[in-house]
Nucleic acid binder design. Sequence first.
DNA 1: ATTTGTATAAAACATCTGTTTGACTCGTGT
DNA 2: ACACGAGTCAAACAGATGTTTTATACAAAT
Lengths: 239, 239
Amino acid sequence: MTTRVAVSAEPRARARRRASRGTAPASRSTGDDQETRSRLLKVSERLFADRGFKDVTVREICRAARANVAAINYHFGDKLGLYREVLQTATDAMRATNDAARRAGQGQPPEEKLRRYVLIFLQGLLASNYETLHRLIHREMNDPTPVLDAFVEQSVRPRVEYLAGIVAELIGGKPTDQRVLRCVASVHSQSITYLPNPIAARLGFHFKPTPSQIEEAARHIAGFSLAGIRAVGRKKSEV
Amino acid sequence: MTTRVAVSAEPRARARRRASRGTAPASRSTGDDQETRSRLLKVSERLFADRGFKDVTVREICRAARANVAAINYHFGDKLGLYREVLQTATDAMRATNDAARRAGQGQPPEEKLRRYVLIFLQGLLASNYETLHRLIHREMNDPTPVLDAFVEQSVRPRVEYLAGIVAELIGGKPTDQRVLRCVASVHSQSITYLPNPIAARLGFHFKPTPSQIEEAARHIAGFSLAGIRAVGRKKSEV
DNA sequence: ATTTGTATAAAACATCTGTTTGACTCGTGT
DNA sequence: ACACGAGTCAAACAGATGTTTTATACAAAT
């Protein structure tokens, strides 16, 4: 009895109306008129990030978005449809971070590529506008919903392959070398550790994601990792 | 509407009977008689680790343990009471790992202390009998239940402080130095990355937790980290 | 033999869950 | 003027959920 799969994307009768988007929705008379649909997206992003897909109720989302209970089913087919759309924006944001890191590293020596990658990744991870999206993704890691597969292919794999390329360049091995993969895991894991989490908070790790603190952390990770990678490179290659 | 707090440990009428434990429960007549209580503990440990506190239903647990729906409330007061007890065994296991790591490092130079710590931690993390317990804990990191505080104090803090001591010895700083704390985070994050997770699985990271693979991974983490720590130690100390 | 305490079981309870329904309000196109 | 579709709403639905109740079986103590 896991996360309740709805195989077909748009399940029921209605909710296909929104096929006709872009025909100037214009404003309607009802008071505020802030496009209920986008309010639902915005509100649910935060709620899903805070507590996960299953632990957030549609009633809660709708209350927070000042919308009717039926709004989610009307606009997104069902709860999973809404979640899918929220996670798609997360995927896009992550891909944008990937591309930015790639661009920043172009023409640079591998050491500098790694430094810039870590910094940009960390900025993307902790920048206030993206932080909820990344927490969302972190949730998928522990409680995969049917959306995870698409996300891994579109976001994680390109990122890991890029990192593997850098590391391979640094230690002079194939990107599929076990040593390379372990180094990639080491770099990546250090980065995501800086996502806010309740245990760190209880330990008194008061890491404030200000630009300068983020740079500091990025410098640490890059320096730590470059030394680590070089050390690994000095050892004999394995199968 | 989070995980449903039950402030008092043993909430209702019954379930305090088990105060009188140890008076030889003996066996009763009903067929198998395998101590329903311990069956519930065993079964729910796996279920909670797989899907988290909230996503597992008491009916499911009871079905898997071949017990009545009321069994949980009878033996543990309520669902959270069962969870609390399961997590207590996890805490104990983790503390045992801590102690083992400490003993193994006694009288060793700090480099060797770190190597042994990482190995023992990883063994504890991935040994088949403890693996579910650690996944359980990993869940608390993302979705804290009321049980988290006790766990952090009893397990995580001693461990982090021990690691901080080693690192401080290596780079010659105070255990509260920012550089030290960042190194601790680096070491710890690399270790927990080796817990099985769906994203790694989808990426084709087929890490089998055999003893030799675990040793391999521990060697990597220790070597990588020692080089990293030394590099950090070469830099000027910060506030 | 009776009482007492422990353990189990089936059924019921109250609440919460995602979803659906049917009515109603508008603007727009004819 | 009219029909139509888009969007919203209150109410209801069916199923799941944690918990409680009531009844019963049994062993040990009295």
